[in-house]
Amino acid sequence: MAKMSIAEALREAIREEMRRDERVFCLGEDIDIPGGFGGAFTVTLGLSKEFGHERILDTPISEIMIAGAAVGAAMTGMIPIADVQYGDFLFCMMDQLADNAAKMTYMSGGTVSVPMVMRAPVGATTRGAQHAQSLESFFTHVPGLKIICPSTAYDAKGLLKTAIRDKNPVVVFEHKLLYGSKGNRAEKSALSPVGEVPEEEYLIPFGEGVIRREGTDITIVANLLMVYRAMEAAEILEKEGISVEVIDPRTLVPFDYELVLSSIKKTSRLMIVEEDTRRNGWGAEVAAQIAEDGLYYLDAPIIRVATYDVPIPFAPVMENFVVPSAARIAEAARKLMKA
């Protein structure tokens, strides 16, 4: 076992897969320029030393091209891992992802596959509205894409390796405050979770969530940074006699509904916490699906705690207000217990 940050775990996953399969390569902006950053959050730092700049390909600032080139390379025998510095830039390449990556297999009657990975950092980090958004719900809506969101180093490595071996386009959402990036790329308010990562190879299948904390009164489903906020809230609530079970779905498409259903059979209360804005979010979809399949297990309405429906503001005092905090989650839980 080695102790690793998420940035290091992602880097290890890329390194191992590039060693295993020469079709795998990385492309993106500033991903390993000598003297540069190794990607905005150091994930690809130093990989060109082993694999050269042909396989760790620094691109022009051309998001449409990055995504389109990934699609074209993936269709013709390569396995690209594309990268954007901030998730918000995915909007620049939306046509390539939603119209080409996601639809090519289907439109061709299954004769084409697009085995590509699109990595994107999300989360509010006092950079203002255009480097802050959590974009999961834009992409969970698109048939043909798979969506994953690792929140620990162990999951980051195992899920990314699975993504690289998947025959379909996989969008990986990574949280800026969870990378544990070092040096001048470290985030001020980062949690920097360092986790145990086995030396031996392992893969984590998509569609299998995990219980981060067992409890009996309320089930909270949360992803990325919100897993940690929910855990913090659970600590607070435990002192008040409220026992919270925290589920991290780890992948949003496919989604582990079985795990949530089995949890609410025990707790009979469900809360969904997401950093994505609330309206039409993935949390709304989970709530609707659980209402269809598990309404009679519930003793109270399903509630969502999400970022308010505003662009992310800059001032830390406002940013902290709009993004769910442990205190806000705990308060919602208290209300839910009385419902």
């Binding site: 990934a70 074209g72 269709m75 390569m78 119209d99």
Partner: peptide, 19 residues
């Protein structure tokens, strides 16, 4: 999608070259 195939062609060319 108008011009949508052009970045894809870049990827196909990249693949031809890398392979």
């Amino acid at each position: 999608i108008t011009a949508g195939g052009m970045p894809v062609a870049v990827g196909v060319g990249l693949s031809c070259k890398m392979r």
